[in-house]
Simulated scan of single mutants.
Amino acid sequence: MGMIFWVLVFSVPLFGIVYAGFTTWLKYRQHRAMLDVLKVYAERGEAPPEEVLTALTKGFSLSEAGVTAPNPVSAGMAKAQGPIHYWSLVGLFAVFSAGFAYASWSSGLAGYPFTIVAFTMGAVAVWALVMAIGLSVKKK
């Protein structure tokens, strides 16, 4: 049991760090390729066509014929999350908070760590509630 715990404790954050580094490297390569395309037009002394600028700034669409490049940023990711997103987070973290509170209560004195997690999850649920109400009022 002890070995599995330590493997999970250290491998999950390390995987996250490696994944973040890899995606950052891919984004760097993409921006470098974009600059290379613009550099070719600058060396010729020409302004790049509007289609090229649109493709470089907004990405590529897989629905166009002959285009196989992925869209770098989807439209849904670029926009701020709406109130429905935060309402779902309220429900999720409220259930987590209740579950950890029950685990703390049923464990007696050994449940102190569950109490900390329950309060943390409850705080996140309250934050999501404030965001959901704020965005709901703002939309009206």
Rank of each mutant, 00 (worst) to 15 (best):
V90L: 06
L35F: 09
L53S: 10
H85W: 15
Q30R: 10
K140S: 11
S63L: 05
N71Y: 00
L62P: 01
A78H: 05
L62H: 01
V126S: 04
G59E: 04
A69R: 06
G66C: 04
P70I: 08
P113H: 06
A132R: 11
G45A: 04
V124M: 06
T68E: 10
V126N: 02
E46K: 07
S136M: 00
A47G: 07
S61V: 00
S74A: 12
L92G: 04
V37Y: 01
P13M: 05
E64W: 03
Y102G: 08
G2H: 11
Y86V: 02
G122R: 00
G76Y: 03
W87Y: 13
H31Q: 15
A33R: 08
P13R: 08
A69P: 01
P49R: 03
M77G: 01
F22Y: 15
R29E: 14
V40A: 14
A103D: 03
V130L: 14
A125F: 06
L14V: 14
M3C: 05
S107Y: 03
L8Q: 13
H31P: 00
L35E: 13
V90P: 05
V95F: 02
S88E: 01
V126F: 11
A65N: 08
S104G: 15
A33H: 06
Q81L: 08
L92N: 04
I84R: 03
L89N: 11
G2I: 11
F100V: 05
P83T: 12
Y28H: 12
A78N: 05
G82L: 12
S104V: 01
E43P: 00
F60G: 03
S88A: 10
R32K: 04
L89H: 07
F119I: 11
S11Q: 00
L129F: 15
W87N: 03
E46D: 00
A94V: 06
V9S: 13
V126W: 13
S11N: 02
V12R: 00
F60Q: 07
Y102M: 13
P72A: 09
V37R: 04
P113T: 04
Y86W: 15
G122I: 00
A128N: 06
F5Y: 15
I17L: 14
G134V: 02
L89W: 08
L62Q: 04
A94Q: 05
R29K: 14
S136W: 02
S74F: 08
L62A: 03
S61E: 03
T24N: 13
V7R: 12
P83A: 14
N71V: 01
A33D: 06
A75L: 12
F114T: 01
A80V: 08
V126G: 05
L53V: 07
A110D: 08
K138L: 09
P72N: 04
L92H: 10
F15G: 10
W127V: 00
M121I: 00
F100L: 03
S63A: 08
Q81I: 00
F5E: 12
G16Y: 00
S136V: 00
V95L: 06
V73C: 07
V73E: 06
E64H: 07
A33I: 05
A101Y: 04
V9N: 10
R32G: 07
K58R: 15
V52P: 01
L26N: 07
M1G: 14
I17C: 09
T57M: 14
S106G: 02
G82E: 15
S11Y: 08
A55D: 14
S104P: 06
K139Y: 11
L135S: 09
S11D: 12
I116M: 03
A47E: 14
G108L: 10
G2Y: 03
G16N: 06
W127I: 01
